[in-house]
């Protein structure tokens, strides 16, 4: 993207690296990374324990909901903090979320397919 000097919306800048480990508008600290790492490790341990705890047929739905919830939570932590999406502008977040939109669309199609026999 070439800068247009006459455009008020674009200001040519060179981003500076700070090197002081402090939080600026677009830089998380190392403490944040280690906190996320600890949370991810803890959630992985919980994930492994879930199929052991909810191993009966009657609590199968609880197991599924818990595991999917944990996986989505972990994926969001990686995307937001390690991939810096938390500090990005909405347009970049929309690009990143495109597969999620596809997933929602696909689930809607599958639900429609499941209920199709009910419609005369």
């Amino acid at each position: 993207m070439a800068a247009k000097p006459d455009s008020p919306a674009r200001h040519a800048t060179t981003a500076a690296s700070h090197g002081d480990g402090e939080v600026h508008d677009d830089h998380p600290t190392r403490r944040t990374f280690f906190t996320i790492f600890a949370i991810l490790t803890f959630l992985t341990v919980v994930e492994v324990a879930v199929p052991e705890v909810f191993d009966s047929e009657w609590n199968r739905s609880t197991k599924m909901l818990l595991l999917v919830g944990l996986a989505v939570g972990k994926a969001l932590l990686v995307a937001l903090y390690f991939m810096h999406l938390k500090w990005e502008r909405p347009w970049l977040r929309h690009i990143a979320a495109m597969p999620v939109y596809m997933g929602i669309f696909a689930v809607l199609l599958m639900i429609e397919h499941l209920f199709r026999p009910l419609v005369p």
Binding site: R10, T13, T14, A15, L92
Partner: peptide, 20 residues
């Protein structure tokens, strides 16, 4: 070098391409 964009902030072209 990077420009501050109204939609993408300070994201470089390479970063936008990698996200795509």
């Amino acid at each position: 070098t990077v420009t501050t964009d109204r939609h993408f902030g300070k994201a470089t072209g390479g970063k936008i391409a990698m996200w795509m």
